Simulated scan of single mutants.
Amino acid sequence: MLDGMEQRSELGEFLRSRRARLRPEDVGLPDYGGRRRVPGLRREELAQLAGVSAGYYTRLEQGQSTNASEAVLDAIARVLRLDETEHAYLRSLARQKAEPRRRLRPERMRPAVQLMVDAFGDTPALVMGRRYDVLAWNRAAHALLAGHLPFEVPEEPRGRPNIARLVFLDPHTRELYADWRAKARDTVADIRMTAARYPHDPELTGLVGELAVHSSEFASMWAAHPVQDCAARYTRDFRHPLVGAMTLNNEIMELSNDEGQRMAVFTADPGTPSAAALSLLTGIADESADPHSGALDSTSERSHTA
């Protein structure tokens, strides 16, 4: 995704997207009126404010300069009003150079991590890999996020549920989130961060291409170049087909011993309607699990919601 010309394109697209969202008056420049050929700051204006030559900035935006100093990057970030996450992302893109590709190991679940997921019991917990595949979940997380899928599917590497695919291509998941567009934007923003971290991962590149082809909404959001770690949003509103509305806390933790793997845990504030709904859902999951497929039995689902 970020090799060669594609790498330069990523850096250029990001800088252009951030220039486009600023007006001259936003950064203290006079606006002499008239229609601009493109929205936002011109390259020359940004370069002037950052204290670099227009030619140098142009080469940087085109990926022809690979030795930008920290001071230059900091100045550009200041002018573009990048937040901390965007600033780190800019540095990541600017620092990527042609280097031997690091062979990524296949993603596997360590037995101790599986035990940790299971230990959460009635608290939904799952582990997600660097390509957004679900590597493991407990029954509570399965019931919360994908009760329409067999429980055992994460055990088969080629059939694992993929969080990004579910968000954009699965109608059940679209209905699950009360604000689906916010969830979708957050997903795209997180994929941007992951893609910068693993620029030579062909499977991650393939995932982005697949989603862009099959979802016009993903393609549009991707083109806007959002950047945000998924851990930045701490609560999420759900509209669950079995138990109704819930507002859940969503904590995401890096697994330091397993590169690229993250654990997500969902909780409800004690004594709230959301806590009651989550408790009801986990009870349904315990009672209704099909011993053959692991999926929730539809007859039991109807009996609990009737």
Rank of each mutant, 00 (worst) to 15 (best):
M5F: 09
E6S: 08
E10Q: 14
L11A: 13
E13N: 11
L15I: 12
R18E: 00
R19P: 02
A20P: 04
P24M: 09
E25N: 05
L29I: 13
R37Q: 01
A47F: 03
Q48C: 08
G51I: 03
G51N: 02
V52W: 03
S53Q: 06
S53C: 06
G55L: 08
R59M: 10
Q64H: 11
S69L: 11
V72Q: 10
I76A: 02
R81C: 03
T85S: 09
L90V: 05
S92R: 15
L93R: 10
R95W: 11
R103L: 15
L104C: 11
M109P: 04
A112P: 09
L115K: 15
M116A: 15
F120E: 05
G121K: 13
D122S: 15
L135V: 09
L135S: 00
A141Q: 06
A141H: 05
L144D: 07
L145R: 01
H148D: 14
L149A: 04
F151H: 11
E155R: 15
E156G: 07
R158M: 09
R160S: 01
N162C: 10
V167Y: 07
V167Q: 05
D170M: 07
T173P: 05
Y177K: 04
K183V: 14
D186E: 11
D190A: 02
R192F: 03
M193S: 14
M193G: 13
Y198D: 12
T205Y: 01
E210P: 04
V213D: 14
S215C: 02
S216R: 15
E217R: 10
E217C: 05
F218N: 01
A219D: 09
M221A: 11
Q228T: 10
Q228I: 01
C230V: 15
A231N: 08
Y234V: 14
R236N: 05
G244I: 11
M246R: 03
T247I: 12
N250V: 13
M263Y: 08
A264Q: 01
A264S: 06
T267D: 02
T267Y: 04
P273T: 07
G283V: 08
S288V: 03
D290N: 11
S293H: 10
L296N: 11
L296V: 12
H304A: 14
H304E: 01
